[in-house]
């Protein structure tokens, strides 16, 4: 279980998180929605230790994330970045098997390559992609390689940062289905950040809406259409008129 209690983070005078309280149960898929610049990425980066909160507490399975062995802690996570964040200088298979080629999860090179090819196949890419460089792939293929890298070491917890941004609707649907399948198949705990309501309905067990630095609404995905929350209603229907200012 992942728990955030009163997490705050400011950058100068910009108070991005003003006290985020959030719980993600083990084996469930939470989608965080909210407008641009509301701190969704900062929230998951805080869990991973990529950003240090100013105040509050973050625990994973009851253990404070600042008190854990860093390598062992990070070995439990996989993350798909918004732009895939593939390493340009490495071929695709070495990107996927990055964690398996070094550190505590190191495997023999041939075995790591086989795992990488298997994971690439899992996300719908053929083995001939393995030896290509990331720059030779389309945006959708890069996202899939990023997804393969996120699941390469069979993590317990996976974060997806805007997994369908910049993709055409068909490719976005493919990625959504893959995420859902992988999360169910692996029994992983997942947090996804997205603006895309189609993705929300495809991926989420639960939804949390971040607005003005706090969780404005949280609940099961089946309740979002009947929540009665004016902020959530405005967001999911994409209305310009409502309590959320269109010009921020």
């Amino acid at each position: 279980m992942i728990e955030l209690i009163g997490v705050t983070k400011s950058f100068g005078n910009n108070h991005v998180l003003r006290g985020v309280d959030l719980t993600v149960d083990r084996g469930t898929s939470l989608v965080i929605i909210g407008g641009s610049g509301t701190g969704k990425s900062i929230t998951i980066k805080s869990v991973l230790g990529l950003v240090t909160p100013d105040a509050g507490k973050i625990t994973v399975d009851g253990q404070d994330v600042t008190q854990t062995d860093r390598d062992a802690f990070l070995a439990r996570f996989g993350m798909l970045f918004q732009g895939a964040a593939l390493f340009d200088s490495l071929p695709v298979w070495q990107n996927v098997a990055f964690r398996l080629l070094r550190g505590s999860l190191k495997r023999p090179k041939d075995e790591a390559r086989q795992i990488a090819i298997e994971k690439l196949r899992r996300v719908g890419l053929t083995p001939d992609v393995a030896d290509r460089l990331p720059a030779e792939l389309s945006g959708g293929m890069q996202k899939r390689v990023g997804l393969a890298r996120a699941i390469a070491a069979d993590p317990e917890i996976i974060f997806f940062d805007e997994p369908t941004t910049g993709l055409d609707p068909i490719m976005a649907g493919v990625i959504n289905d893959l995420i859902r399948e992988i999360v169910v198949e692996m029994g992983a705990t997942a947090i996804t950040i997205t603006h895309d309501m189609t993705s929300v309905r495809a991926i989420a067990d639960n939804v949390a809406m971040l607005h003005d630095g706090v969780i404005q609404w949280a609940g099961p995905v089946g309740d979002i259409d009947t929540s009665g929350d004016p902020y959530l209603d405005q967001f999911i229907h994409g209305r310009a008129i409502g309590p959320i200012e269109a010009v921020r």
């Binding site: 230790g49 990529l50 860093r70 390598d71 996989g78 918004q82 964040a85 593939l86 390493f87 505590s104």
Partner: peptide
């Protein structure tokens, strides 16, 4: 460029 494209963050999440 690695920093701007989140590759540095990716390194951290990959325990490197």
């Amino acid at each position: 460029t690695m920093k701007v494209t989140e590759q540095i963050d990716a390194l951290v999440t990959l325990s490197t």
